[in-house]
Design a protein around this nucleic acid. Structure first.
Length: 567
RNA sequence: CGGGGCGUAGCUCAGUAUGGUUAGAGUACUUGGUUUGGGACCAAGGGGCCGGAGGUUCGAGUCCUCUCGCCCCGACCA
């Protein structure tokens, strides 16, 4: 492609609405242009990157025997009513009516549609397994789109769905998809981590997220400094504590603790480690229908992890309880304990099961119990409720957990029969019995990956594309197009690079050296061959974008050098 | 959906507290000339419903009311 024939509108200034590096540079370098909140146009360069990522995904899917399909973007609302997700998705589902007044939605994900294309067609276990996918525009009417392409309303996602006759076969496919996704990210040249994730209210037996590591990531991950273990903090686990503080010696007693309400005050008052105090966190749990107050008990040294807490009781949402709500049911903030009270539903953290030497509220103003043996609570519900903290032990090895930020570019789920059962998507097993499909689902954010590459690879000059994602691998730049011999050499080099199948752009614009260099760095081609005054000595230079190093090579050896560098 | 901010040339922004010539700058664009290794210089041009509607006023980019859009923080985000 000749620059003079291309459409690459670069700008010196960044759009005022852009905050993130990916948003700023993708806009400035002419890859994308914003249309409205959460809506973007992909310009020629952006489209090339998108297609490259898509191609790599398609190639890896083909290796796994997954079949590409293309489902309608506009989907009848009935399907969503059938699965019950029309309410669940709420306003994120963009709905509208056609001329005949039928209700439709723009597909935000395609579980329902995918199930509908196999149900009543795939009818026998002999036709299983089946893995179908598409790379398609999705639309979610997000309450607050932000961060440029990272959280757009309209975006491109690869969504795949597999159908199985057994959980063992689903497990096999799930592992195969994890491996395929890993290969995709490796080929794209990204640094990433595959982490355990919260499966959410959608259920299923397991899910993993693919996280591209970047400062600007929206998700916090707990990762082991030694082994491969990583998890979204929403789902992270930790090893049992290795260092247990010395236990306070006290017989069970009710103790006057005037105005001692916080864990800090309490541990100070009794001179005990917060480990031996019991923290009560009261939340109003909101369900599909109705709500109730729930008290979560965890050790004083721990923090409640909200997603875990929510999952432990199947709530949709948790909101802080007000003092008035507590007073209404007769609880005194600061003095709430699990013993001898039936005023509120409680959930205990796994780590306090059988705990002894504890201090907890006595459910009476200005009184705590000391020397509590929580074995008396063994009949109450327990769950993992706590957030892992930096320095906690890895659950798989002797390493320590660290926190890092990630961009979620993929999420794979073992769905089981969550969709197939309500949608009555069934097949006949060996015994002629009707069974719902056992399903898996595998998503990858294609347009988000475009942004993720830049979040992970950029500098103060602009984009730094990896070899696999670059819109063009090589930029042949003539510093002064009036020099006929320079142009002649560049034309020849351009032709021979193309003949070798190397994607090349030829900067033949009538611009000054500095202007073209800045553009080359802003756009971020991996290699820019500078054809200029060095040619008098039979040499040209190559700018290596990643390091901004400029190397001088013999004019005759450029092709070989590029091939060597790009290997 | 709560809180905050911003809408003026393709882009980035002045101008709005205190209403008053023909609404400005930089950049980008067009033409001519001089330049040619890190976003050059000179000259001449084109480009605006001052987000929209209503109001106050002799007069509104500027004041009032309503609205629409965009961004940020939070809530939300299978």
């Amino acid at each position: 492609m000749r620059f003079t024939k291309a459409y690459i509108p670069t700008t010196k200034e960044s759009p005022k609405d852009a905050q993130l590096p990916s948003h700023i540079y993708l806009s400035r370098a002419g890859f994308v242009a914003q249309v409205a909140s959460g809506l973007y146009n992909f310009l020629p360069l952006g489209k090339r990157v998108l297609r490259k990522i898509e191609t790599i995904i398609n190639e890896e899917m083909a290796k796994c025997g997954a079949l590409e399909v293309d489902l309608s973007f506009v989907t009848p609302a009935e399907l969503w009513q059938e699965s019950g997700r029309i309410e669940k998705f709420g306003k994120e589902l963009l709905r509208f009516r056609d001329r005949k007044d039928n209700l439709f939605v723009l597909g935000p994900t395609h579980e329902e549609m995918m199930v509908s294309i196999v149900r009543n067609r795939v009818t026998s276990y002999k036709q299983l397994p089946l893995n179908v996918y598409q790379v398609k525009t999705k639309f979610r009417d997000e309450a607050r789109p932000r961060f440029g392409l990272m959280r757009a309303r309209e975006f491109v996602m690869k969504d795949g769905y597999s159908f199985h006759a057994s959980t063992e076969d689903l497990d096999r496919e799930f592992d195969a998809m994890e491996a395929a996704y890993k290969r995709v990210l490796e080929r794209l040249g990204l640094t990433f981590r595959i982490v355990e994730a919260d499966s959410g209210a959608i259920g299923g037996t397991g899910s993993k997220e693919l996280m591209v590591l970047a400062e600007s990531g929206e998700d916090t991950l707990a990762v082991c400094d030694t082994c491969e273990y990583g998890a979204n903090v929403e789902a992270a686990r930790r090893a049992p504590r290795s260092v247990i503080p010395e236990a306070p010696q006290a017989d069970f007693a009710r103790f006057k603790t005037p105005n001692i309400k916080s864990i800090e005050d309490l541990s100070g008052f009794f001179h005990v480690d917060p480990y031996y105090t019991l923290k009560a966190v009261v939340q109003r749990a909101v369900y599909t229908e109705g709500s109730e107050l729930v008290c979560f008990f965890i050790r004083g040294c721990d923090e409640l992890q909200e997603v875990k807490a929510r999952n432990s009781i199947g709530a949709i949402d948790l909101v802080d309880a007000t003092e008035a709500e507590l007073a209404e049911i007769g609880l005194v903030p600061g003095f709430i304990g699990p013993l001898d009270q039936d005023k509120i539903r409680i959930v205990m953290d796994n780590d306090v099961r059988g705990a002894t030497h504890m201090i907890c509220g006595a459910n009476e103003a200005d009184y705590h119990f000391v020397g509590v043996d929580l074995n008396v609570m063994n009949e109450s519900p327990f769950a993992d409720l706590t957030a892992v903290q930096v320095g906690d032990g890895c659950p798989h090895c002797s390493g320590k957990l660290l926190h890092t930020k990630g961009i979620e570019v993929g999420h794979i789920f073992k769905l089981g029969t969550v969709y197939s059962a309500p949608l009555k998507a069934e097949y006949l097993d060996e015994n002629g019995r009707s069974q719902p499909f056992i399903m898996g689902t595998y998503g990858m954010g294609v347009s988000r990956l475009v942004a993720a590459v830049i979040e992970q690879h950029h500098d103060e000059k602009g984009c730094i594309w990896t070899h696999a994602t670059a819109p063009y691998l090589v930029n042949v730049m003539v510093s002064n197009i009036k020099e006929e011999s320079h142009m002649a050499y560049a034309e020849e080099l351009y032709a021979s690079l193309q003949a070798r199948g190397i994607e090349t752009i030829f900067d033949d614009r009538k611009e000054r050296f500095g202007f073209k260099m800045s553009d080359a760095e802003l756009i971020g081609f991996p290699f820019t061959v500078i054809v200029g005054k060095e040619l008098e000595n039979g040499q040209v230079q190559i700018l290596i974008r990643a390091t901004r190093e400029i190397i001088t090579v013999e004019a005759a050896d450029v092709l070989a050098k590029i091939e060597e560098l790009s290997r």
